[in-house]
Amino acid sequence: MKKFINDPAAVVREALTGVAAAHPDLRVDIEQQIVVRADAPRSGKVGVLSGGGSGHEPLHGGFVGLGMLDAAVPGEVFTSPVPDQILAATQAVDGGAGVVHIVKNYTGDVMNFQMAAELAGDEGIDVRTVLVDDDVAVEDSTWTAGRRGTGATLVVEKVTGALAETGASAAAVAAAGSRVDELSASFAVALTACTTPAAGKPGFDLPDDEMEVGVGIHGEPGRRREKLRPAREIAAMTVEAILGAKPLPSGSEAIVLVNGLGGTPLIELYLMYGEVATLLDKAGVRVARNLVGNYVTSLDMAGMSVTVCRADAEILRLWDAPVRTPALRWGV
């Protein structure tokens, strides 16, 4: 597999060098691997921090800035960051009002963030954790690792970031994040595997006429493999899975994301959005806001995910609040 890289082991560091060059308004610590808002910490403002393995860009570094994250902590590709990094970023954004960690529900991420939260707690920083687990392809069970954090992470980061900007308490910001997670459901379908720089070849082989259904964002195979079908049928299966897992009362408003996994062109994402919007309309769901594009990716995987977040006036107000980050920018 061909890639624009120099050395597989240096990809994250060298990409951060590029982020620093492209966005001088962010503070990028290439050695520690943390991305921090230029004006952090702000006294009295809750710090909002997220992180996880790299390879999902623009998540999370692309969402650092006014109205969203105060810091992002990228790990190696598909590998959660380590506690030292998370602690350093937590210290960098603590303005005395506490720090909210937004953690996607993966075993490694949960452990490393938990260790960092304990270390930060020892230093007197009030850390609250929002766990994101929106992927309804995985059954939720206390006997397993539980559902994965995927597309809804963006909505959680946007809403918590906007609320923190208003001077809300750490408890209130964390509660809003958890509420968005509870109201969100996502489902993804892949047309190809992805290739990590270290492995150099695709994670699995997928024949031209087949798709992986119920994939996550780490190149792992999905819940099942099926024959490829027309986009309309894939959209129907996706919407059915989402509404089946988290039914929305007729007349509900929602924020809807049709998200590319990295290797699917926008023309196909818009086509899918059209199908999804029609289906949701038929189901009595009013799409109040939408986002179409590559936001929570899985390197070069061809595929897409749909996220539906049931939204009330408060969530919509926070969604609409000004945001100025490399990947999301409106109202400013």
């Binding site: 790990g75 190696e76 590998t79 959660s80 380590v82 506690p83 075993t107 490694g108 452990m111 490393n112």
Partner: peptide, 12 residues
């Protein structure tokens, strides 16, 4: 290991 590995393997 905790400070260099990340993922689940580092903490475990």
């Amino acid at each position: 290991l905790v400070s260099k590995v990340g993922g689940a393997a580092g903490p475990l």
